[in-house]
Design a protein around this nucleic acid. Structure first.
Lengths: 338, 338
DNA sequence: ATGGTTAGGTTTAGCGCTAAACTCCGGATA
DNA sequence: TATCCGGAGTTTAGCGCTAAACCTAACCAT
């Protein structure tokens, strides 16, 4: 392993000079020496030690990605895509990403502190978990998809309510006059609540029946299948169902079909996310697509801004929510006559 | 930030004593002092600095997860699940996971070296990339799903050929006498090749027509849809298609349906992976399920064994490939009469 | 000639931790 | 009684880097 000292010896200068060159402090070093140093770095294949640097500078250049880990981690396409993009963007900006599953909160917080993490992006983690994480205060934290207003933290959100509104308007335009919402509704305000709120309010604005939600606990395919059984026996059957995630909607489609209902002839269905799964169902799912790349970019930009100018300054400039758009499939039709 | 020195002062001992207690070197410290130290640790809320420890011990306790990053990272469900499980298991064993997207190989290798990563799990990365990564030699590396035999590295594999065989036997038992394979076939031996080999060989053993592969470049839904157009015009139409991934198979189903073909009446389809997407297609996909948790567990166990006993010793005990099983759906039927 | 700058470095000290060498003391051994 | 020994610590040095203080010669203005 080559160290600064090796490079310094090779270039015939002191370690500080090498350090200065590498840090780009040009006014401290003549161009000629800088050149010699650069050649020595090249020749020795020197890579600075992150640990030593972190220790000395008191800045680690590490960002933690805290992923929800009840049971097995990263089962949702959303989280996977987000994490992938985040780590890519962070790497491009010279940071490394530490994956910290929130299965063991104790261990997670310890990791953040132990490694002097500069910032953390907390993905879709709710309620009590959030509070435990805040123990690791003084680390700038960005909560994605979180609607709890927490002082001293940053937030990046999708235009969830807007998405709900788009879904509602699409249905209203087709003549639907009632619909139900399928998604997990908990004690805290979540993305699901917001989608439901946007949806509900658009219906109210149109002056028609506000819809009733069907609660479930997870946004998985299995959950959607299970919910279908409960929806199929409703009387009157709703003419449309708005699901807070594609996986859920896909499971619902399957369950409804199994129950002998046709989509969209008997019931229309709209999903949320716009991931691959929405394209392979029969019928193809009409869904609200969200821009994951934009979400990741905004997240990284905001967090790094906070690292430079402080959380307050960064939090001040509330960026636009990540845009959504309607992706028309085949799962929405005119309302069935009841 | 509390340091060892703070704890030492609080407990009225030297820093080394604290260090010894924390490292569990019981024979160096009397039980009475150890107790005092533990109380002081508790009271001060001390968390050791990873950077300082790494620097001093020359062991970082960091494992890198190298994910394939052409374009956007972690788009495959497989990689996402695998990464999620890996980081969870590593955390439980006291390691932290560094996400290193292989988009920028230069930067990735630099990260590995800079942070003195103890080991790396390289996910499904092929060809030239592998070689570049090996520049960071002397770091134990585990290549998952890799069939290139590389000296001094570890490998964890799914029973891919076995999966192909299961698929073939399932079709043969239903009376199929030919089938084609759909998957990316490249210059290097990959999981896809192995699945195809197992499939092909089982057909050969049965003494019937070996099947011909249809090449594509990615295992995505879009790729499957595109391939359907090419398959639908084959004459004679194959009675079955074996796809090397669920996403691909799901896309294929969609494309075939769009081309006016019925599955399984006109063509039978089998996928590989057993992920959620296989359950929401119409018909539900028959697929070869692989055990992702087992894969992750095996990977972590093997890598950590290598960290303790050296790569040679760990590599010596070739573990069983990760098991696969047939998951029956509705996409396989008797062969269509041609 | 004197002092003041500045460019271009070097030296020193220290980040928080640990390995290794050292100290001290109350027995056990001969 | 002199010697050795192990238990229970402490001290010292150093991991690889950087911030800050320091040095030196060349240059400038007065």
């Amino acid at each position: 392993m080559t160290t600064l000292a090796d490079v310094a010896k090779a270039a015939g200068v002191s370690t500080m000079t090498v350090s200065n060159v590498l840090a780009g402090r040009t006014h401290k070093v003549s161009e000629a020496t800088a050149q010699r140093v650069r050649e020595a770095v090249e020749a020795t294949g020197y890579v600075p030690s992150g640990a030593a640097r972190a220790l000395s500078r008191r800045r680690s250049r590490i960002v933690a990605l805290v992923v929800n880990g009840d049971g097995s981690a990263m089962t949702s396409t959303h989280d996977a895509r987000y994490v992938g993009e985040l780590s890519r963007l962070l790497q491009a900006r010279g940071y490394v990403s530490m994956m910290t599953p929130a299965t063991d909160l104790q261990a997670t917080v310890a990791s953040l502190r132990s490694w002097n993490v500069e910032g953390a992006i907390v993905i879709n983690t709710l309620g009590t978990q959030v509070e435990a994480l805040l123990d690791a205060h003084n680390v700038p934290m960005l909560f994605s998809d979180n609607y709890a207003e927490i002082d001293g933290t940053l937030t990046v959100r999708t235009a969830d309510a807007e998405g709900g509104r788009l879904a509602a308007e699409h249905l209203l335009a087709r003549g639907h006059r009632s619909a139900i919402f399928l998604g997990p509704l908990r004690d805290v305000v979540s993305v699901d609540d917001e989608r439901w709120r946007g949806f509900r309010e658009a219906f109210e604005v149109a002056g028609v029946t506000a819809s009733a939600p069907v609660g479930i606990s997870q946004t998985t395919v299995a959950s959607g299948v299970a919910a279908a059984a409960r929806i199929a026996v409703l009387d009157p059957l709703p003419t449309a169902v708005f699901c807070s995630a594609d996986d859920l909607a896909a499971g619902l489609l399957r369950g409804l079909t199994a129950a002998g209902l046709r989509v969209p002839e008997d019931v229309s269905v709209i999903g949320f996310d716009g991931f691959a799964i929405s394209q392979v169902t029969t019928p193809v799912l009409t869904t609200i697509g969200q821009d994951m790349s934009a979400k990741a970019e905004q997240s990284v930009a905001l967090l790094l801004a906070a690292l430079e100018d402080g959380v307050e300054a960064a939090a001040a400039k509330h960026p636009e929510p990540v845009p959504v758009r309607l992706i028309e499939g085949e799962s929405v039709g005119p309302p069935a006559a009841r």
